[in-house]
């Protein structure tokens, strides 16, 4: 009887957006950036904890993290934060059922809440891109 084949998509199911549309990619990115920011944040608590050792300790720590590889990593965290924050604002709004429409009698052609909040997704991407570009200019081109 139990000779069934498991067909659960697994992690690929939430990581890959497939042919579903932009919201699904926003969903995957939101989780990935969230995990990245959390990992950085926990390290950040310990790195800034070096202040307890006084000014010299702090300056030594900052000199160590001044290497280009850490700067690039920091910039990635900055980009992740921007996406996570801007998309997060959209999620707070739509997950509290604002801007996704009201129940109605479905009549063909059907509309749905995902498409009704699509303009938010576009706005999120434009706003995130603008902030990322501004941050990038500040980060890399305005050092002096």
């Amino acid at each position: 009887m139990k000779n069934r084949l498991n067909n659960r998509l697994g992690l690929g199911g939430w990581l890959g957006g497939g042919r579903y549309g932009v919201d699904r990619y926003a969903y995957a990115f939101h989780r990935l950036t969230g995990l990245g920011i959390l990992a950085y944040f926990i390290m950040h608590i310990f790195v800034t904890g070096m202040r307890v050792g006084g000014q010299e300790e702090w300056e030594r720590t900052m000199a160590f993290f001044n290497a280009p590889v850490f700067k690039a990593g920091e910039f990635l965290v900055f980009l992740a934060f921007i996406f996570h924050a801007v998309n997060g604002i959209r999620l707070v709004i739509v997950e509290l059922a604002c801007g996704i429409g009201r129940p109605h009698v479905p009549a063909y052609p059907y509309t749905n809440s995902t498409m009704r909040q699509r303009p938010f997704v576009v706005a999120v991407m434009i706003l995130a891109a603008l902030l990322m570009i501004t941050g990038g200019v500040d980060f890399y081109f305005m050092l002096n």
Binding site: W14, Y20, G21, D23, R24, Y27, H30, R31, L91, V94, E95, L96, A97, C98, I100, G101, P103, P106, A107, Y108, Y110, T111, N112, S113, T114, M115, Q117
Partner: peptide
């Protein structure tokens, strides 16, 4: 987490994502 695909594929226009968000809002 409002990936929204349930509502996009529903063949009857049921919009499950809407119902779930309404349930969250109600609790809130």
């Amino acid at each position: 987490h409002f990936a929204g695909t349930c509502s996009q594929v529903c063949p009857k226009g049921v919009d499950p994502a809407l119902a779930i968000q309404l349930a969250k809002k109600e609790a809130f």
